[in-house]
Design a protein around this nucleic acid. Structure first.
Lengths: 358, 358
DNA sequence: TTGAAAGCGGTACCAT
DNA sequence: ATGGTACCGCTTTCAA
């Protein structure tokens, strides 16, 4: 029924071994022979059996890219960059490496299960993108699983999350400087004169959430804002609302913030998507941005400037990071010293967002 | 080195066959035996060898999802829906089906190569999303490849593109009614009194591009607009600019349109992303939307309303379509009669976009 | 440069 | 209910 390598061999009047050599191109074969084999392949419309090949070779050309939310361009941009760097189809002739994107939806179980699936497939590499969950049990499980993968020969790359803490495994890490980004963003608002700043944070127990929020609070603390009254933390907790990285969350959190503190002059969102929701809520309330209230985001996604022309954000070089992760995954680039590289976050200021005079 | 099924069998004091049965759960095994086997699996930290399994069983649990642009939420939303419906990790216990997203970048070669790769892997199903290329040679190659895949047992689902024309293969198709959507959108503008309407079309030779544009022109023709002068087609060609489905394209095309026809009162964009670019260009020119000029989009992506509150678009039920495609891919839902189902496009009107009085 | 043949790790049929 | 055992299709020594 289906054409096998032996069929090709028979038609080309050579041994299966020779056909294999021609196909893999990693062994000297006489030009004439190669021609005959390739013609046979063509005539028979032969397609290599991946599983058989992987089984015999004990390796596969699969590269897994785990993302938290495939509908979020934050991940789409990184994943696309990884993929194009991996080479995948369109890279060199014949297409070899297959980069596949796995959507965890932010669920820890799925994350682990996808890793197991990739382990089953003897994946050549795995790239984990975006913030990680901070639950100790899950972190331990991840470390363990990644360690097994690593010493089964799978390359591991973390892109956009902090390094594993207890890792003995050879893992290359590219981490965004979320804390500094968050700090600079809030410093900027403080410099402009804002004193009452709401914060729409991401979901609890995520590294991105925590780091960005910490940066924000570091800036506040350094300026003495919010600590002057002696109950600084309570103040700040009141001005912080957590929620998922979605537009709806930004919308609802903003309404809540306005309820809690009608005297806000600025709102910092955990990321641009959330900022969009925040802006929508403000507009609905009849508040203009930035005349009545300023809004800041994070990530600098392409559409954010359209949605809120005055949006000040922190730009993370998503594409560049993804591309580098792709190169690390293929071994085209060597791991950074210590296995970890921190990628800077650049402040994108768009117009003045000084607070209104009241 | 690596733990195999026989190792597990030895430790559990059973035959490899029994272990296989326990793992696959598709065969009666004594409870006590199962227990012993599972404990052995646990003790040894055994992970099934995917390639070996696929080879022996002659099938795999891979489901490929092809998308044109992974950074575009249009595809992200559909892919996410497919994946969650596929079950994938998180579905039933143990995780089985692995949905993977393959990014073609709109390149015909990559599309074919990914299909070959999936064919190599003996994929259980393949879902092709988004508009298709209209090049006859490529279409033929695709049909041929899909036919081979299909009769190798791979389920094929088209989601958001028209059915294969010469297909004998068993392919389930979910197609968006782009033409009608385009028609209704323009009819709406005509009803409001617009007469000079610019059109920023998608890339040439794409089904979505052609269908949406045809709908637009159908509406114009039906109303007599643009044909009155006798040189209707020339007029319309002048008011149409093609480009990729990107923000930048919308931006540049809009500048071009304004150059060609400063008297435009409305611009219809090929999709929301393009509409964003168009809006940016207009704003830059100091034109207000919709007071000075109206803008219409297509797809109704989540952020579009934030970017252009007055944006009138056509809503395609992306998530629903993806979910249905996922069910078709797993066989959880039976194919529509004739293999093709057309999914309606709903007009989303946001505020009046009547032309300015001049 | 090419061929022969021994696996790779499971699966599923045939026995028992 | 369980065991024995031919394959599945390819890769890779080892020889020639």
């Amino acid at each position: 029924m289906t054409v096998t390598l032996s069929d090709v061999a028979a038609r080309a009047q050579v041994s299966p071994a020779t056909v294999s050599r021609v196909l893999n191109g990693n062994y000297p074969v006489a030009a004439a022979t190669r021609e005959r084999v390739l013609r046979a392949v063509d005539d028979l419309d032969y397609v290599l059996n991946g599983p058989a090949s992987s089984l015999a070779a004990a390796t596969s050309d699969l590269v897994g890219i785990l993302v938290n939310d495939i509908a979020d361009p934050f991940f789409g941009i990184m994943a696309g960059a990884v993929q194009s760097e991996i080479g995948g189809p369109g890279g060199r002739a014949g297409g070899e490496r297959m980069a596949v994107v796995c959507n965890t939806g932010g669920s820890p179980e799925r994350e682990l299960t996808y890793l197991t699936l990739l382990q089953r497939q003897r994946a050549a590499a795995v790239v984990l993108t975006g913030g990680a969950l901070e639950d100790p049990a899950h972190a331990a499980a991840m470390s363990a699983k990644l360690a097994r993968l690593a010493d089964a020969g799978t390359r591991i790359v973390l892109c956009g999350r902090p390094p594993l803490d207890d890792s003995d495994a050879a893992v290359a890490t590219l981490t965004f400087d979320n804390r500094n980004g968050g700090r600079r963003l809030t410093e900027h608002l403080l410099t402009l004169g804002h004193r009452r700043i709401g914060y729409v944070a991401g979901p609890m127990e995520r590294t991105t959430t925590r780091h960005r929020l910490e940066g924000h609070r570091d800036a506040l603390a350094a300026s003495g804002t919010g600590t002057a009254g002696g109950n600084g933390n309570a103040d700040q907790d009141e001005l912080t609302v957590h929620g998922p990285y979605t537009r709806r969350s930004g919308y609802e959190a903003t309404l809540e913030l306005l309820r809690r503190a009608p005297d806000l002059t600025a709102i910092v969102a955990a990321n641009d998507t959330v900022a969009l929701g925040a802006s929508a809520a403000l507009r609905e309330r009849g508040l203009r941005i930035p005349e009545d209230i300023s809004v800041a985001g994070f990530d600098d996604l392409p559409f954010s400037v359209d949605a809120v022309p005055a949006l000040t954000t922190v730009r993370l070089p998503l594409y560049e990071a993804g591309a580098r992760a792709g190169r690390l995954a293929t071994g085209a680039e060597e791991a950074p010293p210590g296995g970890v590289a921190t990628i800077g976050a650049e402040l994108m200021v768009r117009g003045s967002t000084a607070p209104p005079c009241r």
